[in-house]
Amino acid sequence: MKNLLTAQPRTRRAARMDRMATGALYGLGALVLLLVFWLLAAILSKGLPGLRLSFLLGQPEEIDPGGGIGPVLFNSFYILLLSLLISVPIGVGAGIYMAEYAPDNKLTAFLRMCVESLASVPSIVFGMLGLAIFAEYFGIGLTILGAGVSLAMLNLPMLTRVTEEAMRAVPDELREAGHALGMTKFYIIRRILLPVAMPAVVTGICLVAGRAFGESAVIILTAGLSTSGEMWDFNLFSPGETLAVHLWYVQSEAIVEDARQIADKSAAVLVLFVLLINLAFRLPMWRAKRRHGG
């Protein structure tokens, strides 16, 4: 009886602490959301009202006011597409290998540590590596090709690690059930494990795509601060200034009268397209999940 009486205050105290901790976590979450929405509102409210189609498709101006962002916006998507075409197959494949095929030994642990270390390396290091490989070793200069490959190298470690963790998070019961039915290992991965892990893999692709679209240090060192002057230039060996680099240049070194307005509109376009890229990757997953649930 005495133990029961002493346990009741402890239970009430634990419940009170639980409510306080839950309230504190909800408050911190709400604070983070408010900060994110405030930043988005501050950026978009300055740039969106002044956006026109002529600005999105126009040529940048060095001296005269009223320049656009057409070529640099095209280069942003072009370099992003090149980097994803290289990094997604290699990164996802490497992650699947590390999770499902690689033996659990010291070499695998060392490779995993290297991947984790590369994922935290500053982007300017990959920019210098791309500069040394493409501009100095191969002698092709500052090009769209060099920027795309350098961005792929920047995104590979993160995409590999995310894919590996997503595959490891799939319950072992699904693997055992597939083997019990006589399925091959590759068939189990392709038809069972990968579809289950796909939401996490898509999240990783969204992260690397947003990072690549807004990257500036790598682009400056591998693609340069200029464009070919053409709106739709698919030449891989042309210079490839992107929207993020153009935003930095306009804000820091441009001499045009409306540099601040161009910077505000460019920042709004950059944030808006990053949001649209994430939506474009996630929308098919949401539809598939809803259709499956229905």
Rank of each mutant, 00 (worst) to 15 (best):
S87M: 05
L118R: 04
L56P: 07
G95I: 01
M167T: 04
V274N: 11
A267L: 09
R19F: 09
P171F: 00
P89M: 00
R19L: 12
S117K: 10
V245P: 00
L154F: 06
G182F: 01
E100Y: 06
E176M: 06
L39T: 10
L270Q: 07
N155V: 01
V245N: 00
Y137R: 12
N278T: 08
V92H: 00
I144L: 08
N105L: 02
G130P: 04
L107C: 06
A177F: 09
S216A: 15
L275Q: 07
T222I: 05
M285H: 11
L159M: 03
I188G: 06
A109Q: 15
V121E: 01
G148V: 02
N105I: 03
Y97V: 06
L44Q: 11
Y137V: 01
L56W: 13
V271D: 09
K289C: 07
A119Q: 00
L33N: 13
M167F: 15
M285T: 13
I96S: 03
H179W: 14
G210S: 01
S120L: 02
L85N: 12
L129H: 01
R190V: 02
N105H: 06
P195T: 01
L107H: 12
P9T: 04
Y187K: 13
V218I: 13
A41S: 14
G93R: 08
L80N: 07
E257L: 10
I133D: 03
A263E: 03
F77R: 04
N155M: 02
I144Q: 06
S87D: 07
L272Y: 04
E164T: 10
S87Y: 05
T242Y: 07
P71T: 02
L84T: 04
V202P: 13
T11G: 13
S123Q: 08
S150G: 04
V121I: 10
L283F: 15
A132R: 05
I192Y: 10
A7Q: 14
W248I: 01
V125A: 09
L243V: 05
H292G: 15
F186C: 03
V274E: 07
T160M: 10
P103R: 09
A152G: 02
D233S: 04
T222L: 00
L5P: 11
R12F: 14
P122R: 03
E176L: 05
A109T: 11
L243Q: 08
A268K: 05
G146N: 05
F126E: 02
E165N: 13
N3P: 14
M1V: 12
L107F: 13
